[in-house]
């Protein structure tokens, strides 16, 4: 099957700076693909190159097998949902949504019908005559989505679309976006810096750092088998252990990652389960989250390890400065390629 999008050795230089450095990836048709990374990692540059707002310095971009590297955005079958929504302030909701058909020469009654149909899909048909200024953030978000979907693009690009919404609305929209994507069957490329969002929605995630792609995998693989320290920290908020502590625990200086929830916190001096590894330290900080609490323990070897303790676990001393013991199974260690 021809990939919906293919990037072949794509780089984008701003002066001497590599905003994107030799990235190659391909996205399957109908896939929900996330580009994940902190700000400045190159994920948005990557999206802008696919949309055609910017041209790569090196490399090729193919859409549905066709080389579009030199094709302007208005001739690409790609649509974008912008971070600030970019709704036209002088047009009503329906006119905004009908903009794509309008510039392609679709007659007024037909494009109005199409607009209402798509607004129905995002459950906004009632607000068709409002102006964008009268909408809430979540509603603007849906109008932006409808305005892109009406063109039935081969690929829909979403640039941190939920970034400006509050937490509750964001979670609702995640579910809705995923449902809409499955309903329309369009390839989604989703840029985000929120690893929770990427893991919960995407089929595959490309993790970016400093213009390079660190790892491209399914959410589960990324979480369970991070290949680099960066991915371990950024995607799983995992502890990355190296140097003295690694030597102390495993007997070798090779770095490894361990997820906070794989570490058990027990009272200092308490017996360690058979076959488990352990170390002791001083409780520095404790964050209570309800179902779990997050413990930051300074180990005797120096580095701080984070552990997640379920609410139901046997009570132990929780005062800062207490000595505690950390224990975990050998299998929960993930060896890393670097630190």
């Amino acid at each position: 099957m021809t990939p919906a999008i293919e990037l072949a050795g794509v780089s984008r230089l701003f002066g001497p700076v590599h905003a994107l450095d030799d990235v190659s990836l391909s996205v399957a048709p109908g896939e929900f693909f996330a580009l994940l990374g902190p700000s400045g990692s190159g994920k948005t540059t990557c999206l802008r190159l696919i949309a055609g707002f910017d041209r790569p310095t090196h490399g090729k971009i193919l859409l549905d097998g066709e080389d579009v590297t030199a094709i302007p955005p208005f001739d690409r079958s790609v649509n974008t949902v912008f971070q600030d929504y970019a709704l036209f302030p002088h047009m009503s909701v329906a006119e905004n949504v009908a903009y794509g058909p309008k510039v392609r020469g679709v007659a007024e009654p037909e494009r109005k019908r199409l607009a209402l149909e798509v607004l129905e899909l995002v459950r906004l048909a009632k607000l068709a005559d409002r102006s964008p200024a009268q909408l809430s953030g979540g509603q603007k978000q849906r109008v932006a989505l409808a305005r892109a979907l009406i063109n039935k693009p081969k690929v829909l690009l979403l640039d941190e679309p939920l970034g400006a919404l509050d937490l509750r609305l964001r979670e609702e929209m995640q579910i809705e976006l995923k449902a809409i994507q499955q309903q329309v069957g369009i390839t989604f490329v989703y840029v985000t810096h929120d690893q929770g969002e990427a893991l919960s929605m995407a089929d595959r995630v490309a993790v970016f750092r400093d213009g390079r792609m660190e790892q491209l995998d399914s959410p589960r693989e990324l979480y369970v088998h991070p290949r680099t320290a960066f991915v371990a920290r950024f995607v799983g908020s995992a502890n990355v252990v190296d140097g003295e502590l690694a030597k102390h625990i495993t007997g070798a200086a090779r770095a490894f990652a361990i997820r906070a929830e794989a570490i058990e916190v027990i009272a200092a001096g308490a017996p360690v389960p058979a076959g488990a590894l352990s170390c002791e330290g001083v409780l520095e900080d404790l964050h209570y989250h309800g179902a779990t609490s997050r413990w930051h323990v300074r180990t005797d070897a120096g580095p701080i390890l984070a552990a997640v303790r379920p609410e139901g676990a046997a009570p132990i001393a929780t005062a800062r400065g207490c000595r505690v013991r950390l224990a975990w199974s050998r299998e929960s260690l993930v060896p890393l390629a670097d630190t």
């Binding site: 208005f74 790609v78 600030d84 794509g100 510039v103 305005r147």
Partner: peptide, 21 residues
Amino acid sequence: PQSLLQASADLGARPGQTFRN
């Protein structure tokens, strides 16, 4: 905002159409 012009091009408007609309 620049993003409005990009949105217009993204939705298929040629530069002349973006200017008019």
